[in-house]
Write a protein that binds this DNA or RNA. Structure first.
Length: 268
DNA sequence: ACATTAACGCCTC
DNA sequence: GAGGCGTTAATGT
């Protein structure tokens, strides 16, 4: 009976456009093709790639060769970047916008958000593994510009020792993050999980304000629930509890952390 | 301690 | 106006 929810989640996400507009998003309309880029002009593939840590140690020539296999695509808010059904054999680079990487339970359609992705991050790495059964998907939380590389091309890149080393680090750190959250889900209770989530988000998506550290995301309570493996109702109750204790405040779906210390206390 | 269900008004699309 | 969202309360595990 609840089985619709998971599917509906795909449609729900955000509604605050105007906040996002004045920050980013003026690029993306004209995109020079990688081939003859001499200068790293703003908005070119080369210019985009420079922002990815994983290419930090790449020299210009190497980077230029990457631009030749990199495809760009714009994704509208709430549209999927890839679906669980697809045998996604691509590696994605998030250039602009924000996205969520989630896993849908086949039985009841419930969603668990694995990662929130911000510009400069890679995703779709699971297609590197042999088993492609994975029921993960990526959805744009805002208008996104993504780059992607076909698996075959990507495989060739991994022959570069420096690159594959960086890749290993990245996969490793994701692994650690997942393990930590696994332990959270098993051994911590909702207020603790939610407190941790808020602290994490305020670090990952910071927006300094007079009132304190704000989280630069417009997550719905349903999203937060999907992030910590709880229900929307419990998230609502717990958030109000936090507000009553003066730990946080929220206006227009943006949460502001007022009392970091006590929130940290809760997160132990 | 938390999920589930149902019911409500509000807000968005 | 429909459906998504936030909220509350009752009830179940």
């Amino acid at each position: 009976m609840d089985s619709f929810i998971g599917i509906l989640i795909l449609h729900e996400i955000f509604q605050l456009d105007w906040l996002l507009f004045f920050t980013e998003i003026e690029c993306g309309s004209e995109i020079p093709l990688g081939n003859n880029v001499q200068t790293t002009e703003k908005g070119s593939k080369l210019w985009h790639l420079r922002k990815f840590n994983i290419f930090e140690k790449f020299d210009r020539d190497d980077l230029e060769s990457v631009t030749k296999i990199l495809h760009l695509k714009e994704i509208k808010k709430r549209d999927p970047i890839y679906l669980p059904s697809e045998n996604h054999s691509r590696i994605f680079f998030l250039i602009k916008g924000k996205a969520k990487l989630s896993r849908i339970d086949a039985k009841d359609g419930k969603e668990l958000i694995l990662f929130l992705i911000k510009p400069g991050e890679l995703f779709g790495l699971l297609s590197l593994s042999e088993e492609r059964y994975s029921n993960t998907m990526a959805v744009a939380l805002q208008r996104c510009l993504v780059g992607y590389i076909e698996f075959a091309d990507f495989q060739r890149m991994t022959k570069n020792a420096v690159f594959s080393m960086e890749l290993n680090k990245l996969v490793g750190s994701r692994m650690v993050r997942i393990e930590n959250r696994l332990d959270e889900l098993l051994f911590r209770e909702v207020p603790c999980r939610l407190a941790r989530l808020l602290l994490r988000l305020s670090k990952e998506f910071p927006k300094k304000m007079k009132c304190g550290d704000k989280i630069d995301l417009n997550l719905t309570q349903q999203d937060m629930a999907n992030l910590i493996g709880a229900t929307r109702e419990i998230v609502s109750l717990t958030l109000n509890d936090f507000k009553r204790q003066g730990l946080i405040a929220s206006h227009r779906r943006q949460i502001c952390i007022h009392d970091k210390k006590n929130l940290q206390e809760l997160s132990r």
